[in-house]
Amino acid sequence: MDVKDIIKPENKVYSKTSVLTDNVMHYCPGCSHGTVHKLIAEVIDEMGIQDKTIGISPVGCSVFAYNYLDIDWQQAAHGRAPALATATARLFPDKYVFTYQGDGDLASIGTAEIMHACNRGENIVVIFINNAIYGMTGGQMAPTTLMGMKTATSPYGRCEELHGKPLKITELISQLEGTCYVTRQSVQSAAAARKTKRAIRKAFENCSQKKGTSFVEVVSACNSGWKLSPVKANEWMVENMFPNYPLGDLKDR
């Protein structure tokens, strides 16, 4: 059978969802952001909630998330996305409101906002991209940077004396009464990406059932920040990040 006989509309099994725009993403080659964007877009498409979804984008590489997902967006100040989401979800209780935040945004400058939004059980979805580094500002140490990991602001490796140990924010979040679903996933493989998509779908479904805050961490690679090739970065992530940030559900009720 010739390839041109296979490539026909009736044989199409996977194509870009229309919730993703045609814009070329500004992310580095192999960046996990693009994959997670796609998974969120696919969930929105499959649930038919494009007209009811409001995204809150952070400060960081994903500040431009609004260029890629064709929904209404609010772009927040650094760390404050959960505060925007709180008001939006309370004023529009029938909408699907989600924040999309990196580790610097969520686990450093925005700890107060994320803790209290989760503790109040705001009816929102939080997508947390943890790549253990500040990507956009040029690879500085993040609260989730691993011990010994070299970054622009920990050039000799993260050490406990100077920087303290990595902040396991998701474990903290899972302790809060307001959260209904707290999970940690990844997107380096097709199987992992499919699991993450199911987690995101569940989080959005929790939203429609008004169950409280759903928190989906995606352990991600920042190959530019880590100074590795995209494929090597994913391997490094599996080897080094997963032991510190083990995948799986921390809470599901």
């Binding site: 390839v3 099994v13 993403m25 192999g30 693009g34 994959t35 796609k38 097709a190």
Partner: peptide, 25 residues
């Protein structure tokens, strides 16, 4: 290697830039 493709969509699923469309028969 076009003859080896099974249309499993793994490539498209992990593609960060969503630039792969998959067909299967």
């Amino acid at each position: 290697n076009p003859e080896s493709c099974t249309g499993c969509s793994n490539c498209a699923t992990v593609c960060p830039d969503t630039c792969i469309t998959v067909y299967r028969v």
